[in-house]
């Protein structure tokens, strides 16, 4: 393995923040209309350019950041908790289950009942999946067992999504399976962002509070216990954290794959393999990667946008293969 210089947080986090800012500004420039920035900034409500910037592009890119933080952070947390380098919210089936929960809520008339109904549907789905994963992992499952179980869960759940959409009375439902399985933030509005953000925030804080436990856990279950961590309680906290943020994020963006796998791996050498530090940097890294993917979909197909999951899988799929190849001795 190549040696990478470990960067202290005070250097790494500002670097990631700067990258985030650059991507954010570039992302706001994307779109079929050439934006008149002066008009957009001086007349945010009265001018068409103002409406385009503040009501079309800004909610979309803010959502990209929030979903990116969620996926990067939950990927880092799951890899630490399961002590499995191939874990990610999508690979173990959490995002698909969240999508199923959101699908059942949206297409069968429940989403209109309350502003939080749609994210709630996603969170319930995500919770079921994380519990399933932890039940499996608790029985001393190997790296491979968990991934194979995730594959089975994903196969079952994506079929259930198709089944649910098939029974929906809405004529558009069946074609929207692409959105749920590949994810997109095109035309998401401030309403979507505001409905999901409180739950994502709560999930982030919960996961970030698990940092020291993850550090201890990296030394082994016994060590963590002897350092005074109540392993059982901390695990529950992490389960809730993942369910909250991933469920809410998927409910408004569909299933965007591989970010939770790729980002922690890329950043791990830079933080000296410290799980707690990895949480913070993966959160920012996830946001950068999702913004970059969103810029890519808008540039590649401006009118009829590609789904975000197409881009992230094109990056993440080969990366996954590379990880399997590198870990092949540990896997068998």
């Amino acid at each position: 393995m190549k040696a990478t210089r470990v960067l202290p947080d005070r250097a790494l986090l500002p670097l990631l923040l700067a990258a985030l800012l650059v991507c954010f500004v570039i992302a706001l420039q994307q779109g079929p209309v050439a934006l008149d920035w002066r008009q957009a900034l001086t007349e945010p409500r009265a001018s068409i350019h103002g409406v385009i910037l503040w009501q079309v592009r800004l909610p979309r890119e803010l959502l990209a950041i929030a979903v990116g933080i969620t996926l990067g952070l939950s990927g880092a947390a799951l890899q630490g908790l399961l002590r499995n380098p191939l874990a990610g919210p999508d690979l173990v089936g959490v995002t698909n289950c969240a999508a199923l929960g959101a699908v059942l809520t949206l297409y069968f008339g429940l989403a209109g009942l309350a502003w939080f109904a749609l994210p709630l549907g996603g969170m319930v789905g995500a919770l079921v999946a994380v519990l399933l994963v932890f039940a499996l992992a608790g029985k001393q499952a190997g790296v491979l067992t968990l991934i194979l179980a995730g594959m089975a869960i994903n196969a079952i759940v994506s079929s259930l999504i198709a089944l649910a959409l098939n029974y929906s009375p809405n004529p558009f439902a069946m074609s929207e399976i692409v959105y749920w399985l590949l994810g997109s933030i095109a035309n998401r509005s401030s309403a979507d962002l505001l409905a999901a953000l409180p739950f994502m925030l709560a999930g982030w804080l919960t996961l970030l509070s698990c940092g020291r436990f993850l550090d201890a856990l990296s030394l082994g279950e016994q060590t963590a216990q002897s350092l005074g961590f109540a392993g059982h309680r901390m695990r529950w906290r992490a389960v809730i954290g993942v369910a909250l943020c991933v469920g809410a994020a998927v409910a408004v963006s569909g299933n965007i794959g591989f970010i939770g796998l790729v980002v922690p791996h890329l950043l791990r050498p830079w933080v000296g393999y410290e799980p707690r530090r990895l949480l913070w940097s993966s959160a920012l890294g996830g946001a950068v990667l999702l913004l970059a993917a969103d810029i890519a979909v808008q540039r590649l197909s401006p009118t009829n946008e590609l789904k975000l999951g197409v881009i992230t899988a094109l990056i993440g799929g080969p990366f996954f293969l590379h990880l399997i190849y590198r870990n092949r001795n540990a896997l068998t």
């Binding site: 409406v51 009501q55 989403a111 809405n170 558009f172 929207e176 509005s189 309403a191």
Partner: peptide, 24 residues
């Protein structure tokens, strides 16, 4: 609208509720 309220919700129909479209 291609389908009435009886058809229930979908991402496609939510699109028509986007605040920017409502501004128009």
């Amino acid at each position: 609208v291609t389908a009435d309220d009886a058809a229930g919700d979908s991402i496609a129909h939510r699109y028509l509720e986007h605040p920017a479209l409502q501004a128009l």
